[in-house]
């Protein structure tokens, strides 16, 4: 590659906010972002899973996958981006690109639809990307706490499971602090065992 980063001190980085549809990703991003969440779209051409019955020719479909994101300027020379990503398994190929270089991920969970979060947990576990699980407390879900969620999702003991109100800036901020702290301890872990 014939280019090099021009300024060691001026940097941007990212944290991924993942979870099922309607779990509060955009709300979370909007709560802490300094800009109204923006939307970027990726064009995706997939071979359709089924085959055309008559011709037996595989069909290609071009679809659009939208992603909301926000930004936080943390210092004059440091910007943090937050990307809210659709959690379904069929988007995994897109995540490979998105999570490259991410500090870590916050997996938002709605207790009423726990299974929506399986794919995200599976993915980050498989990738070895540091992640935390954040239980978004929708009205009426307060009867389930982090311990219940940890058990239901079989989250290993070292991975933080917290509660979050995606609408609340302080709460969302706390979740970001938590994933960043956790990512740091994971680094230390790697260094210590190396």
């Amino acid at each position: 590659m014939d280019y090099a980063p021009s300024n060691r001190n001026s940097a941007s980085t990212k944290i991924v906010v993942a979870g099922g549809f309607g779990v509060g990703k955009t709300t979370f991003v909007g709560a802490v972002s300094e800009i109204d969440p923006l939307r970027t779209e990726a064009l995706v051409t997939n071979e359709s899973e089924g085959q055309d019955d008559i011709s037996k020719v595989q069909q290609k479909h071009t679809t659009t996958v939208a992603m909301d994101f926000g930004r936080i300027t943390l210092a004059e020379n440091l910007v943090l981006y937050l990307f809210g990503t659709p959690g379904q398994r069929r988007f995994w190929f897109m995540w490979d690109d998105l999570v490259k270089g991410a500090i870590g991920a916050v997996v938002l969970v709605d207790v009423r639809r726990l299974d929506d979060s399986f794919a995200a947990v599976d993915y980050f576990e498989a990738k070895g990307l540091p992640f935390i699980v954040a239980l978004n407390q929708f009205d009426g879900s307060q009867e389930f706490g982090p311990d219940d969620i940890r058990e239901a999702l079989a989250i290993p003991a070292h991975i933080p499971v917290i509660e979050v109100d995606a609408r609340d800036r302080e709460s969302a901020k706390k979740a970001l602090v938590r994933i960043t702290e956790f990512a740091l301890t994971q680094l230390t872990g790697v260094a210590a065992s190396a």
């Binding site: 280019y3 980063p5 021009s6 300024n7 060691r8 001026s10 940097a11 941007s12 980085t13």
Partner: peptide, 26 residues
Amino acid sequence: KTRTTISENTTSDERRELIERTLSGL
């Protein structure tokens, strides 16, 4: 010219430094 991000070429010291800066910023 691209500015710094975490990439495959980032050393573990640089990675740690960037995450630490992010943490104190947050």
